[in-house]
Design a protein around this nucleic acid. Structure first.
Lengths: 161, 161
DNA sequence: TATTGTTATACTCTATAACTATA
DNA sequence: TATAGTTATAGAGTATAACAATA
């Protein structure tokens, strides 16, 4: 069953049917338009039920996957400033989702780990967004989604890190 | 000449080399990571030289391409609220880049048009970001960029408009 | 001197509520 | 009663500066 939406002219905005021919090839514009959809999915599947903001969720998930990571490395991975990553970690720590562990030899540094509850939440949240995205993006085949993810990763890799 | 960066492990963040296996398939996450790159390109090519914010530029470009569009339709196309689109239009109008024209029959409504300067700026800005993106994303072939744009457009089209 | 992490603070962006005017 | 657009205001998100402690 194809969606009526698939009959949209190629060079018009998804909402409002505005011409976007000159913007069509702009990756930044298309990323922003696509993000409107994924942001809505995230808000519905994770933001509202688990009270996690997008960045907050990503911080939690990356700590979960990278036990004993430092705040500095997290900040670089997400391109957020040091004061802001500290604030996000604060929130997660106060909710009992992550722990700050003192570094054994370097007394300035610290390791970050998820608690048992944090790990469980990270798993549940990831599962929920994934399912939500697959549901919302039904018009894309599994293959198309794979290609899209790989190309996006290639774009992200152009970053100076 | 291939970039040293192309030797990056597939499931690590571009910066910080964190594992991201569980996030890898999340479109929202990959969009955010890719946006870090395109946002930097925009800031350098348009944001700084022309003093235009991303949304501000997009509003200008869409008005340029859709003469006599209404603020309501613009707001829907960009998924921003009515008060915010009004503020962005205010900024553009005060800089002499767009004009608000009273509607002929409906005295509540108005048409939006770019001025001669606004049109010139829209053209120059679009040209600059495009060139900047092509330069920054040199590791993607022209074909890959086309596929990426089309898939992103397909994602955006999943929006309820 | 450079690095890790923090606090304090200001700025930008966005959202909601309440309003005017018109249809 | 619904719509187009505005104003006022609060909240979320991010940035810079200045700092403490350690390497």
């Amino acid at each position: 069953m194809s969606k009526s939406r698939s009959s949209l002219p190629a060079d018009t905005t998804p909402a409002g049917r505005l011409s976007e021919a000159s913007l069509h090839l702009l990756l930044g514009y298309q990323l922003a338009q696509a993000s409107i959809v994924t942001n809505a999915v995230f808000a519905e599947q994770v933001g509202a039920p688990f009270e996690l903001r997008p960045v907050e969720y990503t911080v939690l998930a990356l700590i979960h996957e990278n036990p004993d990571v430092s705040a500095t490395r997290l900040a670089k991975a997400l391109a957020v400033t040091a004061p802001n990553i500290a604030a996000w970690i604060d929130r997660l720590e106060k909710r009992g989702l992550v722990q700050r562990i003192p570094h054994a030899t370097d007394r300035r540094a610290q390791h970050l780990r998820t608690t048992r509850e944090g790990a469980a939440l990270a798993r549940k949240a990831t599962e929920s967004v994934l399912a939500g995205e697959q549901d919302a993006l039904g018009s894309l085949s599994q293959g198309e989604r794979m290609i899209l993810v790989e190309l996006l990763h290639k774009v992200a890799t152009c970053r100076g890190g």
